[in-house]
Amino acid sequence: MLSMKKPGVKSMGNAIEIRGLNWRPGKDFALRDLNLTVPEGAIYGFLGPNGSGKTSTIRLLMGMAKAGSGKIEVLGGSVPEDLRRTLSLTGYVPERPHLYPGLTVRESINFHSTFFPTWDGGWARNLIDSFALPPTAKVGRLSKGEVGKLMMLLALCQRPRLLVLDEPTDGLDPVVRREVLTAIMEYVSETTATVFISSHLVHELERFCDWIGVLEYGTLLTEMPMEAFKNEIKRLRVVGAPQEPPGDLPCQVLGRHPSDGLFTGETWVVRGWEEEMAACFASSGAVVKDVTHLDLEDGFVELLRTARPERWREQATGKEV
């Protein structure tokens, strides 16, 4: 992990708390009873496939849309009641470029800095140099990477307590992506800022997030520290697997399928596995030959694989989703 938290810095509370959030923008999609907690000082990866509701959640956090019901608190202030205060403490990089296209880089920085009393002009000048941004070029004529870097510069130089980044590196080349992520990590390493970053680029989040939340079709499937998530989902190789999972098996079976290659048994993907659970298999005559740790991407895919059939079943039976 690239996480570079200041040693000794303790989390003081929650930077973001969402409770019972419901929002339905149209007929097909809804955020349903969303509960989400981002501890202060965390780098929280908000993971989900395209169309899962990540951007919608962020828009609600930023007060750009009004929830049907539920409670949103950002840095101790309610949204939208204390929106002005929360926005003044939040650096935001949206999914799509949002800057005024007719302004130059320098004018955009001047414009943005006016609204934030904590603006760090010296750092902005440094970042212009290190990001190699052309100060007199119009925003509308910048490349995608340059716009991404400019948006990140604006968000960082506010010196926010919370960074809300909506797929900030999507579509950027690896060099620019690394520059942007490095700037974020440098900022986080010297402050206690919280980062809430949404992405579907799993490997990117795995590298530097310490918390993870997985959203699928408006529902939060799981939310936990990154290490716990990675340790929780395992792949088992089972020989002589019973038709039904052992009744006393205390972990959740996410999937099972015949193994390929030389191995003759079955491959099971389970959640909440503990070593002593192998005894449950033994009681039904099965043997657990091998236990593999899954990386974030594999765990994420397995989690979605189990969540999706449930959703399809709900849709097929006409149950509201």
Partner: peptide, 9 residues
């Protein structure tokens, strides 16, 4: 999006 993200009523 930009104007709505600025700390303004």
């Amino acid at each position: 999006v930009y104007s709505l993200s600025l700390p303004f009523a």
